[in-house]
């Protein structure tokens, strides 16, 4: 199997989860109701744990240890989509991002549970069970707030508009796309995006929210190749502030 292709796939998935998990954890203590503080914290813990598991697979392929990889790289070495690094904004933005990202991630892990790269297939079968609950949570809140009152509806619609092109950036294709598909490691971003659109369309309709007009669609790419918004480096500086005091020490 093409190791470079596998590594590229693992890095972008692990980085997405690490960065979004970090963002989700920023809601701790600040949610609109206590129950949502708790929910975002649970999802953050799952995501960080999932990213750690993916970094473990990378480590088994010869990359450095998860802590070193996660805490010692600079922004231009990260492969996450720009979408996940954006600041949390208000609860509308965070909820729409959670909805759009987790639907894609659930499908990604579902597809990968049949991967011929067995370590990833095995992990994916475990993770897709966790993601089921993230997607339930997102669906309930998007539907509830989309239909709540005028303010909540317009906030959610604005957030969806704001998120949309960034969300399309989740599906930025890798240079190894063809190899991944041919070797039956991953069915590819195009297929994932197609299924994602099918899944979210029904929920958004129930939520009374409209997907932006297709002629405005323009994926915000670059994240997968290390191009990021100015939001990522400060996040990483904060994340590694203590670790970098002495990266060789046990913390």
């Amino acid at each position: 199997m093409n190791q470079d292709a596998i590594k590229e796939l693992l890095y972008k998935m692990a980085d997405d989860l690490l960065i979004l998990g970090h963002r989700n954890s920023e809601w701790t203590g600040l949610g609109p109701i206590l129950e949502e503080d708790i929910a975002f914290s649970s999802m953050a813990q799952d995501k960080i744990g999932q990213s750690q598991a993916l970094f473990e697979i990378l480590h088994s392929l010869g990359e450095q240890e998860p802590d070193i990889v996660a805490f010692m790289r600079n922004a231009n070495q990260f492969h996450n989509s720009q979408f996940v690094e954006l600041p949390n904004g208000e609860y509308d933005f965070s909820t729409i991002r959670h909805f759009l990202f987790d639907h894609a991630d659930q499908l990604r892990f579902e597809m990968l549970s049949n991967s011929l790269f067995e370590p990833l297939a095995k992990l994916s079968r475990k993770i897709k069970g966790e993601l089921k609950y993230h997607v339930f949570h997102a669906n309930i809140w998007v539907t509830k707030l989309g239909n709540g009152n005028e303010e909540s509806h317009s906030r959610m619609q604005n957030a969806l508009n704001e998120c949309w092109n960034f969300a399309l950036g989740i599906f930025e294709e890798s240079q190894f796309e063809r190899q991944l598909i041919e070797e039956k490691i991953f069915e590819g971003e195009v297929e994932l995006k197609k299924r994602w659109l099918e899944n979210i369309s029904g929920i958004l309709e129930k939520a009374n929210l409209k997907i932006p007009n297709t002629n405005t669609w323009q994926a915000i790419n670059g994240g997968r190749q290390g191009k990021h918004t100015p939001n990522l480096q400060p996040l990483l500086d904060e994340m590694s502030e203590v670790f970098k005091i002495d990266a060789s020490a046990e913390w």
């Binding site: 970090h22 954890s25 920023e26 701790t28 203590g29 206590l34 503080d37 708790i38 914290s41 649970s42 953050a44 813990q45 960080i48 744990g49 750690q52 998860p66 802590d67 996660a70 805490f71 996040l235 904060e238 994340m239 502030e241 203590v242 670790f243 005091i245 913390w251």
Partner: peptide, 24 residues
């Protein structure tokens, strides 16, 4: 909570998130 985003390493980050979540 302000230390969740700065906790050194996966193990500490996960544990602190769970701890502060318990408090909430």
């Amino acid at each position: 909570g302000t230390w969740i985003t700065r906790a050194p390493g996966f193990r500490r980050k996960l544990a602190l998130m769970a701890k502060v979540q318990d408090e909430v």
